[in-house]
């Protein structure tokens, strides 16, 4: 057996080497042999960026899911429905008022309220009975999907990208150098970069909230020992409702953000539920940093799968999940 210290050194070395190789692949002009094996550099960089931004979107959805689970051990399988409902509500409000940002805020609030309702009406009534809670959320998601289909029909909705966020940005990344010597730079949609930025901001915000505020401290205490937290005089139900509101609100928020980057249509609820499930299984249930790592991995896997082996793309995601489960059943950042 090697000492843990040495093992960690090797791991860090591996990550550094991988990062260096990736950076080189992004910024260097590709030599012939690399183009022959991987195809055009533009495809690669675009896929990479798509993967990272999709990972950001998945993080937005999955962080709420994992937050709720981490504190309350509630698996909310209606999380995908909340994503979709958030998207629809945001769309309606944005259409009516003409302001995308207002739609975003209303979607967040509306879904946060629905989360509180769910917590009070369902989860509080069957505390400790995890399986029943899970089954109830399945029932709710069936009904919600059907009712949303009734209200918004099977049409695909597409948001107008908010003012000041459309268009493409030119990245300081050279895709090819023309024979004349002029470099060609890669362009990328502004909005997608914004999605990534929002995900990073939300991630940092969550981290600060959990680690630097009094309520965050209560939440972390609740994750470790619910009974002791209640015994020390904290109103646990208030904390639970708050966390549920944040977790659900993030799903609604992601519904608008994701609905603008891609689109909203029936079936998206299942897609994002699956994404959240896989992300938290890979990253570790209940860990926000795990959700970030998982989301990045799954987003990248999905986009690279789509670009380089279209028919077997799903299998790649699946293989990552199986691999993680085989080596670390609790997930990358999970603890038992």
């Amino acid at each position: 057996m090697r000492k843990p210290m040495q093992r960690r050194t090797i791991l860090i070395l591996g990550i550094v080497l991988l990062a260096a190789a990736l950076l080189w692949m992004i910024f260097a002009v590709w030599p012939e042999w690399l183009v022959d094996t991987l195809g055009r550099k533009k495809t690669f960089v675009n896929t990479l960026l798509n993967g990272v931004t999709l990972g950001g979107l998945y993080f937005l959805v999955a962080s709420g899911f994992t937050l709720v689970f981490g504190l309350m051990r509630n698996v909310n399988l209606a999380h995908g429905s909340m994503y979709l409902l958030g998207g629809y509500i945001g769309y309606e409000v944005a259409e009516a008022t003409g302001s995308w940002f207002f739609g975003l805020a209303v979607a967040f609030l509306a879904i946060a309220v629905s989360g509180i309702l769910l917590q009070v009406a369902v989860f509080r009534r069957m505390e400790g009975d995890e399986l029943r809670q899970t089954l109830v959320t399945i029932g709710i998601s069936i009904i919600a999907a059907d009712l949303m289909l009734a209200v918004w029909t099977g049409t695909t909705y597409q948001f107008d990208t908010p003012e000041g966020l459309y268009g493409a940005v030119v990245l300081p990344v050279i895709s090819v150098v023309k024979s004349s010597g002029a470099p060609v730079f890669i362009k990328y949609p502004m909005y997608r970069l914004m999605v990534l930025g929002v995900a990073v901001v939300v991630g940092i915000g969550l981290w600060l909230f959990l680690n630097r505020t009094r309520i965050g401290m209560m939440i972390r205490a609740g994750v470790n020992d619910r009974e002791m937290l209640a015994a020390s005089g904290v109103n646990v139900h208030f904390v639970f409702a708050l966390v549920f509101a944040i977790g659900a609100g993030l799903a609604g928020f992601a519904g608008v953000v994701g609905g603008t980057a891609l689109s909203i249509a029936p079936g998206e609820d299942i897609r994002y539920l699956l994404a959240s499930l896989v992300v938290v299984i890979v990253g570790g249930l209940g860990s926000v940093s795990g959700a970030a790592i998982g989301a990045l991995l799954i987003g990248l896997a999905e986009q690279f799968g789509l670009a380089y082996f279209p028919t077997y793309g799903v299998v790649l995601t699946f293989l990552i999940m199986v691999g993680v489960l085989a080596i670390r059943p609790q997930g990358i950042m999970g603890t038992r």
Partner: peptide, 30 residues
């Protein structure tokens, strides 16, 4: 795959497998 985990984890993992299989057969034409 799933028997190493317990309770609700089993639901989540088997659900993920089911959805992944669905997308796989839908995309695979060969």
């Amino acid at each position: 795959i799933s028997a190493r985990t317990e309770g609700i984890y089993t639901i989540m993992i088997t659900l993920a497998i089911a959805v992944a299989f669905f997308y796989f057969v839908r995309q695979n034409y060969q």
